[in-house]
């Protein structure tokens, strides 16, 4: 069980940190760093879920939240809490992607900042997010498992 939790931690947290870092343009040249937030903002805007005034706020908040929550979960520090935040984010992302599919909008995911090429949102994105969310929920419920830096986690009732 501890090793399964470690696997869940690495899968969910690894994906979140990678997604956050790519959205912020921290991998690649300076031109990519300058472009990345705008690229993500345009993806967010094309989802047609947020008012324009909120797009810049979410553009920066979401990737930093992915980096912070994913980073803590990866290290095994505050695993339950970072897992809960990560699960919440992933479920919101899944709902957003689902609404895009239901409305039939031909938009790109923007999930990994174009790392894997910009492809239109499909049910594969939803399935991937649900797997990642399941990993994050497992960590939120059962803790960080093996190789966690701070294994003595608090539980929700504490």
């Amino acid at each position: 069980m501890p090793w399964l939790l470690l696997l869940a931690r690495v899968v969910a947290a690894g994906a979140l940190v990678l997604a956050g870092v790519m959205k912020l343009g921290f991998i690649g040249g300076s031109a990519q760093a300058a472009n990345a937030p705008l690229v993500f903002a345009l993806s967010l805007q094309s989802f047609k879920l947020l008012p324009d005034a909120l797009v810049p706020v979410v553009t920066y908040f979401v990737p930093w939240c992915e980096v912070v929550a994913g980073g803590l979960m990866l290290l095994g520090v505050w695993s339950r809490q970072s897992g809960a935040v990560a699960a919440g984010m992933l479920l919101v992302f899944t709902l957003a992607l689902g609404s895009v599919l239901v409305r039939g909008l031909p938009v790109e995911c923007g999930c990994f900042g174009g790392l894997f090429g910009e492809t239109k949102v499909t049910w594969v994105n939803i399935a991937r997010n649900l797997v990642l969310a399941a990993c994050a929920v497992a960590v939120a419920i059962a803790g960080g498992g093996a190789l966690a830096l701070k294994p003595d986690e608090t539980r929700p009732h504490q």
Binding site: A34, F61, C65, V67, W78, R155
Partner: peptide, 24 residues
């Protein structure tokens, strides 16, 4: 304690996002 840590994660993320948005 549990909710407090969740709130700290969100607040730290928001602070970093704010700094980043001004520093670009």
């Amino acid at each position: 304690m549990w909710l407090k840590r969740c709130a700290i994660i969100l607040v730290v993320s928001a602070a970093l996002a704010a700094v980043d948005s001004f520093a670009r």
